[in-house]
Design a protein around this nucleic acid. Sequence first.
DNA 1: CCTCAATGTAGTAATATTATAAAAATAATG
DNA 2: CATTATTTTTATAATATTACTACATTGAGG
Lengths: 292, 292
Amino acid sequence: MATTHSHQDENVLEVIQARLESLNKSERKVAEAILQDPTSATRYSIAALARAADVSEPTVNRFCRSFSATGFPDFKIRLAQSIATGTPYVGQNIGPEDTVAEFADKIVLSTIASLDKARQALSYKALANAIDHLIQAKQINFFGMGGSAPVALDAQHKFFRFNIPVMSYDDALMQRMVAAGSGTGDVIVVISYTGRTREMIDIALIARENGATVIGITTPDSPLADKCTVVLGVTAPEDTEVYMPMSSRIIHLTVIDILATGVTLKRGKDFHHHLKKIKDSLKATRLRSDEL
Amino acid sequence: MATTHSHQDENVLEVIQARLESLNKSERKVAEAILQDPTSATRYSIAALARAADVSEPTVNRFCRSFSATGFPDFKIRLAQSIATGTPYVGQNIGPEDTVAEFADKIVLSTIASLDKARQALSYKALANAIDHLIQAKQINFFGMGGSAPVALDAQHKFFRFNIPVMSYDDALMQRMVAAGSGTGDVIVVISYTGRTREMIDIALIARENGATVIGITTPDSPLADKCTVVLGVTAPEDTEVYMPMSSRIIHLTVIDILATGVTLKRGKDFHHHLKKIKDSLKATRLRSDEL
DNA sequence: CCTCAATGTAGTAATATTATAAAAATAATG
DNA sequence: CATTATTTTTATAATATTACTACATTGAGG
């Protein structure tokens, strides 16, 4: 199962919509019948769909083939996948009239959508590169300001498990001092949504000049990205919408997860022992069920 | 499009995985054949799948029916939807042999899967309830320890925008002091993955005794949940797997997003003005493209 | 050794595809 | 502008494929 989600990513429903104009009379009837109620369409037999569209069965079959399916059943499978993939609320904005159930769903679904987008955009090469740097690090520092401060803190927690010195800073002054005091073998991970925070750019530059490795989790091609040794580009979803949450934090956290996992994996066996010890030490602070 | 993703949300792949143990010999063969390569399974005919699983066709048919499908084609459709819904790596654990691309994808996809699961499990009523409490709060405090500290910090950042006093604490001592000093009108949001952290349970109890509202973002039916005024239950995915990241943080953050959005929405119009002012004030610290 | 559940065999029904013919649309010619 | 030739589109009907059902067989547990 090397590369699961490959070519098959294109959404049939969208393709139908797009090609609707260029279809001839009968085929358009079929398209419209499907678009009108795609979910039921997946349950129709070719005869049923032909009846619904008021055309003959072979027409439906030809229609399917024209969308590069091998036949009707194959087409139905693709359609089914499209429906499932189709994030229902994508693009739909949150408004004051929404019920709790509605906007809660919209938030979760839009978060999911941006995660999926990020997945497709992530450079595995850059990730591998970043992981290599982190493994060899004498010391790791995570820098995040404002909304990225929690992300940096989270990273610190995660990396604390590997017995390298890890710190996180959310204060520009401290960051500057640490950057100034850094040197070869040190890794500094700068986290910034925009990649345009003045202070952060300065700080990254200082760290680089001192020979430290700077890994950037930020917008690709941004001023900050330019200063980094390795850039983990996170194409941020538009922030235009008033009510929409910043999904970027979530993506950044997930990138942190990937880095931490990568380091764990590469470190190999004897290291797991150490990791398990930390996990066990936490158990003591918890209440067991029989103690309630 | 009131409620798009209705009943049909359950993931067939997961159900197969779950019921794997309880199946008899032949049916398990079918299950394994499907799980081994679900994508191709959607393209198989019943005969082909029967051959792949080394069983007879009716066995496959019975297998499908046992998953409450009307027959094989119907089952295939559901399977196709499950795959598209995004969990190709469901059940598949991250291992040392994985390439960066593989485990990165697995992490993102498993995060997506748990978000989706959380969405289905979230109680809208509890959310609405929590939002009501937050709106009326004189003061809001977010408590999170260890891995939940970043979540609390993030919440503080988010709620800072509403002009109510907001603080976050990651230190048990401080939390205890704040809880002790709290009273009616105060809202304390306790964030805990397990809901079994001793300190946290004590602290929640103290806050309650002083008349404060305690909102819990934690495992439902946990000791901590019992002490809360409102519980936002987050059924946590198993933490058994060594390499798997804790997706719970991500879910918690998303819950925070929902709460913050809810508060914004309910606060209404004149409040947007205030929100926009904060956003604008941040722009000054950023580098514009023409300044590079 | 019997009973009941599990599985397979073979026949039947359903569904989809192909080949081909009819109809409609377009182009060409007088 | 009408009329025929040509191409494209669509439908009918036959065929092939695929899925389902009823029944027979096997095998496990009592």
